[in-house]
Nucleic acid binder design. Sequence first.
DNA 1: TTATTGATTGAATGAATATTCAATGGATAA
DNA 2: TTATCCATTGAATATTCATTCAATCAATAA
Lengths: 210, 210
Amino acid sequence: MTPRKTPIKARTAPPEVRRNQLIGATINCIADQGISGTTLAAIAKEAGLSVGLANFHFKSKDALLSETLKHLAAEHRDMWLRDVQRHNLSNADKLRFIVSAQFHPRICSRRKLAVWFAFFGEAGYRKTYRSISSQIDMERQELCAELIESIIADGGYAKADAEQIALTMEGMFDGLWLNMLMYPAKFTRERAAHQVLDYLGLVFPRHFAV
Amino acid sequence: MTPRKTPIKARTAPPEVRRNQLIGATINCIADQGISGTTLAAIAKEAGLSVGLANFHFKSKDALLSETLKHLAAEHRDMWLRDVQRHNLSNADKLRFIVSAQFHPRICSRRKLAVWFAFFGEAGYRKTYRSISSQIDMERQELCAELIESIIADGGYAKADAEQIALTMEGMFDGLWLNMLMYPAKFTRERAAHQVLDYLGLVFPRHFAV
DNA sequence: TTATTGATTGAATGAATATTCAATGGATAA
DNA sequence: TTATCCATTGAATATTCATTCAATCAATAA
């Protein structure tokens, strides 16, 4: 038998593997039980690891939760950033990609929506959570505002206010997410994306044909 | 000394008074500490009552939280229903009142927003939430759809889809609420209401002048 | 092989918390 | 006044949970 580099079930694994394993388990637990129902014991069981290991790889349960939120935020950011950075895209197309990333199945599965809103629910009194999600929200919102600015200049939409439109988009993003979580039958991913694009079609008819 | 009907500090009070006192304290606690940080001891202290009394007037902590959610939902519903039922209002005016109720200071103070999203975020209460407020949400949404339908008929907006527009409004309502909670400096009540009205102005220019 | 390092375990600990309930006290009726 | 009825209290109980840490195990270096 030749030795393997990656045995099927090694007892030990590099820290990064364990961290991802624990973060994934945390996402599942929060989706199923909410944040208050998410105990270290439940996370450990879900991950197939021991309780002690969670405190070994993360400093505390609190840290594990923060890292989980950071993970989701980074995943979302990567999604739209990768698309938008491609060359040969018009500004309108870039905006279209941002919308489509917002409602990508990988980003807003029911499971992940549940986790996002679990954190939003705590954000009222936890600065940590607010600042983690504000970092990526601001970045995206500023990019949207710039793109919209260019579109306004390009299309001669005299009366349009770029920042206001960007804020409205941001509002629609979150509101549609919430409605998808609460009423999945009525609010689907496709429909949500369509609603945002319809709005853009109203504001910029020459760039987003209806 | 004549006997008073309402002494300044009666030791006992009718159940309804105590219940409201406890619900108010629960709102404050959730806003300050989140649902998981809201202990019966904290609620009792905030209300200036004893722990046992909370379990006496409500069956359990869970019941107290559910009643708190019902209280908020009813308060919101009363607000827009009262305005909309007034006579001599055009359909567009009724819609305007629904928007203004949504962003009324009494309804969406930062404190209460924190409580709403605390409930949205807790998986355990999501079902409770749906059973309590899906009726109320649907009621408002259907009313909006009817009003919009009439406006479309009235204004000859051939291409408009009433249900789609109602859903978009619903999405904006929730999304703007979330953004007001997360970024209070950027999203104010006035601005949020303005954004929804701007959207309506785009869709129905003859009914909602820009 | 043996020693060293670092990952992993889970029982033990202590803190926090929901719920219960026997005792208390104030209001009302007789 | 006296008796009755409830609202009210808060200490006691039982449970749950995060965190710690000494012991174990696997991999790698020597």
